[in-house]
Design a protein around this nucleic acid. Sequence first.
DNA 1: ACTCCTTTAGACCACCCCGGTCAACAAGAA
DNA 2: TTCTTGTTGACCGGGGTGGTCTAAAGGAGT
Lengths: 210, 210
Amino acid sequence: MKKFQELDEEKKSRILEAALLEFAEEGYEKASTNNIVKQAGIGKGMLFYYFKNKKQLYHYLVEYSLTIMQEEYMSEIDISETDFIERMKEVTRLKWEVYVKHPAVFRFASTFFLSDMDELPERLKEQYASLQENGYALIYKDIDYTLFREDVSSEKLFQIIQYFLGGYEERLRIELKQQLIQLSDFDSYVKEFFEYLDVLKVTFYKEERQ
Amino acid sequence: MKKFQELDEEKKSRILEAALLEFAEEGYEKASTNNIVKQAGIGKGMLFYYFKNKKQLYHYLVEYSLTIMQEEYMSEIDISETDFIERMKEVTRLKWEVYVKHPAVFRFASTFFLSDMDELPERLKEQYASLQENGYALIYKDIDYTLFREDVSSEKLFQIIQYFLGGYEERLRIELKQQLIQLSDFDSYVKEFFEYLDVLKVTFYKEERQ
DNA sequence: ACTCCTTTAGACCACCCCGGTCAACAAGAA
DNA sequence: TTCTTGTTGACCGGGGTGGTCTAAAGGAGT
């Protein structure tokens, strides 16, 4: 595994990408090391020269992904913005930016979050728990609920926005999978997405006094 | 396959359920006939006595599911309701009702809708296309857009509701998978869901004159 | 009791893919 | 030349695949 770290970046990322995608699409059990080496363009032997077995490779990918998610996504969010919708704009924009930069990491992480972590080493469990905490704070910390209109439950408005975000992202994911969207179109999707959030501001927030 | 139709209902539905769930969870290629017979509690030979091979079984399941979705779901919706939110209440309530009644069919159908249909016999393709058309009409036909407030694009409001529906359903699906919800709780989820839609009525529709 | 037909189970087939090993070899340094 | 390091892919035992087939059980008619 030390050997792997010392490879040149290009080869390292070819292997990482192949492995991340294979585990993301098939899950741990069904992921095939044969597919990984084929996709990475290396011999079968090398994978087990770099990593002692399938499980260790998987753990390496988990750590790698958690680290990227923390450093390039979570820690970049401006938590001083108390306007929920504005903060969600920033969260989503950054999320998509990471997606464009590290698509394989992102897809691996999404499926990893849904799998069960029972067999992970303690260190990785802790790293994951800390990431979850940060994610929670990202959404709930220091939000100014007084911006919401008062004639309906602000809790419900808050939830509706979150369900909307989930639904919008799911549609994007599906269209990406079916290749209806190119990664290069993301800017225009961010723009459209912001328009939706501005509509929600008009309808969910108090009317502005001027 | 004629032989299969003549089985007593209990055995038939045991086999159908086992097969639907296996295909739903694994997809066509990876679904295992061994698992199906084990789950259904029949000998391996019987499956190939009733159906000539895996593919024919799959086609039978597709037809069976499409028929149920059409007859017990699509055709039951009251398309004369022009209030979009009210119609979505009805659509969703019925959808969940079918889910409770035929969970295996529903899960099979959901994954089937996302798979590619290239290899299906023409007859099934047509049946599927007709179902899609009906589904489209369910959402778009005769909707009264004048109910929406006029200070923001009603097209966007319309879309937001749909994304919200998708997001809400996805969360339900996940919680069901993780067994956080029992099927018997569905009534209270319908109630909560209707409350959300009523909030959307207040915020997205014109203020009522009285 | 005997026959005949239908229904049933599961051992078995050839095949494919799995994670992991290992002998052989290539490249380069000393 | 020798030693070290990097690299390959054939190969291993194990296990799962869709599908077949034998042999037995069940039941109806005589």
